[in-house]
Protein backbone atom coordinates (compact mmCIF):
# COMPACT_ATOMS: atom_id res chain seq x y z
CA UNK A 1 0.00 0.00 0.00
CA UNK A 2 1.19 3.48 -0.85
CA UNK A 3 1.41 4.98 2.63
CA UNK A 4 2.60 8.33 1.37
CA UNK A 5 -0.47 8.64 -0.85
CA UNK A 6 -2.80 7.92 2.08
CA UNK A 7 -0.87 10.40 4.21
CA UNK A 8 -1.26 13.09 1.58
CA UNK A 9 -5.01 12.45 1.35
CA UNK A 10 -5.24 12.86 5.11
CA UNK A 11 -3.13 16.03 4.92
CA UNK A 12 -5.33 17.49 2.22
CA UNK A 13 -8.15 17.41 4.78
CA UNK A 14 -5.94 18.91 7.49
CA UNK A 15 -6.14 15.69 9.46
CA UNK A 16 -9.55 16.73 10.78
CA UNK A 17 -11.57 14.00 12.48
CA UNK A 18 -14.73 15.54 11.04
CA UNK A 19 -13.36 14.86 7.55
CA UNK A 20 -13.28 11.10 8.18
CA UNK A 21 -15.92 10.34 5.55
CA UNK A 22 -14.30 12.65 2.99
CA UNK A 23 -10.91 11.03 3.60
CA UNK A 24 -12.33 7.52 3.28
CA UNK A 25 -14.06 8.54 0.04
CA UNK A 26 -10.78 9.82 -1.37
CA UNK A 27 -9.01 6.60 -0.44
CA UNK A 28 -11.85 4.57 -1.92
CA UNK A 29 -11.66 6.55 -5.17
CA UNK A 30 -7.91 6.12 -5.31
CA UNK A 31 -7.61 2.41 -4.44
CA UNK A 32 -11.17 1.24 -5.16
CA UNK A 33 -11.29 -0.27 -1.70
CA UNK A 34 -10.26 0.40 1.89
CA UNK A 35 -7.39 -1.84 2.98
CA UNK A 36 -7.07 -2.54 6.69
CA UNK A 37 -3.66 -0.84 6.82
CA UNK A 38 -5.16 2.34 5.41
CA UNK A 39 -7.92 2.33 8.02
CA UNK A 40 -5.33 1.81 10.73
CA UNK A 41 -3.36 4.78 9.48
CA UNK A 42 -6.46 6.96 9.30
CA UNK A 43 -7.37 5.95 12.84
CA UNK A 44 -3.95 6.92 14.16
CA UNK A 45 -3.65 10.18 12.27
CA UNK A 46 -7.18 11.39 12.97
CA UNK A 47 -7.24 10.07 16.53
CA UNK A 48 -10.55 8.43 15.74
CA UNK A 49 -11.18 5.07 17.46
CA UNK A 50 -10.98 2.07 15.17
CA UNK A 51 -14.46 0.96 16.20
CA UNK A 52 -15.90 4.18 14.79
CA UNK A 53 -13.94 3.76 11.58
CA UNK A 54 -15.23 0.21 11.24
CA UNK A 55 -18.75 1.43 11.78
CA UNK A 56 -18.37 4.27 9.28
CA UNK A 57 -16.68 2.12 6.65
CA UNK A 58 -19.44 -0.48 6.85
CA UNK A 59 -22.32 2.00 7.23
CA UNK A 60 -21.90 3.90 3.98
CA UNK A 61 -22.45 2.10 0.73
CA UNK A 62 -19.65 3.85 -1.16
CA UNK A 63 -17.01 1.98 0.79
CA UNK A 64 -15.69 -1.46 0.06
CA UNK A 65 -13.57 -3.51 2.42
CA UNK A 66 -12.64 -5.91 -0.36
CA UNK A 67 -10.68 -5.18 -3.54
CA UNK A 68 -12.81 -4.61 -6.63
CA UNK A 69 -12.60 -6.42 -9.96
CA UNK A 70 -11.27 -4.92 -13.20
CA UNK A 71 -14.74 -3.91 -14.28
CA UNK A 72 -17.27 -2.44 -11.89
CA UNK A 73 -20.87 -3.11 -12.86
CA UNK A 74 -23.58 -1.07 -11.21
CA UNK A 75 -27.15 -1.94 -11.98
CA UNK A 76 -29.66 0.76 -11.21
CA UNK A 77 -32.49 -0.47 -9.01
CA UNK A 78 -34.30 2.85 -8.92
CA UNK A 79 -38.06 2.67 -9.07
CA UNK A 80 -38.25 3.70 -12.71
CA UNK A 81 -35.74 1.02 -13.68
CA UNK A 82 -37.50 -1.50 -11.46
CA UNK A 83 -40.88 -1.11 -13.12
CA UNK A 84 -39.19 -1.30 -16.50
CA UNK A 85 -37.58 -4.64 -15.75
CA UNK A 86 -34.28 -4.02 -13.92
CA UNK A 87 -34.65 -7.18 -11.78
CA UNK A 88 -34.62 -9.33 -14.91
CA UNK A 89 -31.49 -7.58 -16.14
CA UNK A 90 -29.85 -8.09 -12.76
CA UNK A 91 -30.69 -11.77 -12.77
CA UNK A 92 -29.16 -12.34 -16.16
CA UNK A 93 -26.03 -10.43 -15.14
CA UNK A 94 -25.81 -12.49 -11.96
CA UNK A 95 -26.08 -15.69 -13.96
CA UNK A 96 -23.40 -14.68 -16.40
CA UNK A 97 -20.92 -13.34 -13.88
CA UNK A 98 -21.74 -15.92 -11.24
CA UNK A 99 -21.71 -13.29 -8.51
CA UNK A 100 -24.27 -11.53 -6.36
CA UNK A 101 -24.42 -7.78 -5.74
CA UNK A 102 -21.59 -6.77 -3.44
CA UNK A 103 -19.33 -9.55 -4.72
CA UNK A 104 -16.31 -9.84 -6.98
CA UNK A 105 -15.62 -12.93 -9.05
CA UNK A 106 -12.54 -15.06 -8.24
CA UNK A 107 -10.80 -13.95 -11.46
CA UNK A 108 -11.23 -10.32 -10.37
CA UNK A 109 -12.91 -9.62 -13.68
CA UNK A 110 -16.20 -8.17 -12.51
CA UNK A 111 -17.53 -6.57 -9.35
CA UNK A 112 -21.29 -6.35 -9.25
CA UNK A 113 -23.36 -3.89 -7.30
CA UNK A 114 -26.81 -2.43 -7.32
CA UNK A 115 -27.37 1.30 -6.94
CA UNK A 116 -30.55 2.97 -5.91
CA UNK A 117 -30.91 5.58 -8.60
CA UNK A 118 -28.44 6.91 -11.08
CA UNK A 119 -30.93 9.59 -12.05
CA UNK A 120 -31.17 8.55 -15.71
CA UNK A 121 -34.72 7.35 -15.23
CA UNK A 122 -35.66 8.04 -18.85
CA UNK A 123 -33.15 5.42 -19.94
CA UNK A 124 -34.24 2.66 -17.58
CA UNK A 125 -33.25 -0.04 -17.05
CA UNK A 126 -29.75 1.36 -16.75
CA UNK A 127 -26.49 -0.48 -16.17
CA UNK A 128 -23.23 1.31 -15.55
CA UNK A 129 -19.99 -0.45 -16.42
CA UNK A 130 -16.77 1.37 -15.57
CA UNK A 131 -18.71 4.63 -15.35
CA UNK A 132 -20.25 4.18 -18.82
CA UNK A 133 -24.01 4.29 -18.86
CA UNK A 134 -25.94 1.76 -20.89
CA UNK A 135 -29.64 2.44 -21.14
CA UNK A 136 -32.92 0.82 -22.18
CA UNK A 137 -31.54 -2.62 -21.46
CA UNK A 138 -33.33 -5.90 -21.85
CA UNK A 139 -31.89 -9.17 -20.55
CA UNK A 140 -30.43 -10.35 -23.84
CA UNK A 141 -28.69 -7.05 -24.68
CA UNK A 142 -27.20 -6.97 -21.20
CA UNK A 143 -25.86 -10.46 -21.81
CA UNK A 144 -24.38 -9.35 -25.14
CA UNK A 145 -22.70 -6.31 -23.59
CA UNK A 146 -20.90 -8.33 -20.94
CA UNK A 147 -19.23 -10.51 -23.56
CA UNK A 148 -17.16 -7.52 -24.66
CA UNK A 149 -15.25 -7.28 -21.39
CA UNK A 150 -12.00 -9.04 -20.69
Amino acid sequence: MDTARIESIIDSHDGEASSLIQILLDIQNELHWLPAEALQLVSERLQVPMSRIQHTATFYKAFSLVPKGRHEINICMGTACHVRGAPRVLEVVQNITGIQPGETDPDMKFSLDTVNCLGCCALGPVMEIDEQHLGKLVPDTAAEVLKKYE
Partner: peptide
Protein backbone atom coordinates in the same frame (compact mmCIF):
# COMPACT_ATOMS: atom_id res chain seq x y z
CA UNK B 1 -13.90 1.99 22.15
CA UNK B 2 -13.08 -1.72 22.06
CA UNK B 3 -16.51 -2.73 20.83
CA UNK B 4 -18.60 -1.02 18.18
CA UNK B 5 -21.37 -1.42 15.69
CA UNK B 6 -20.70 -2.50 12.15
CA UNK B 7 -22.94 -2.33 9.07
CA UNK B 8 -26.49 -1.03 9.07
CA UNK B 9 -30.16 -1.99 9.04
CA UNK B 10 -30.93 -5.65 9.58
CA UNK B 11 -27.25 -6.45 8.89
CA UNK B 12 -26.11 -4.41 11.87
CA UNK B 13 -23.93 -6.28 14.37
CA UNK B 14 -21.64 -5.56 17.24
CA UNK B 15 -17.97 -6.25 16.74
CA UNK B 16 -14.88 -6.08 18.92
CA UNK B 17 -11.76 -4.42 17.60
CA UNK B 18 -9.42 -7.37 18.09
CA UNK B 19 -6.24 -5.49 18.99
Amino acid sequence: YAVGFVDRGPSREISFVPE
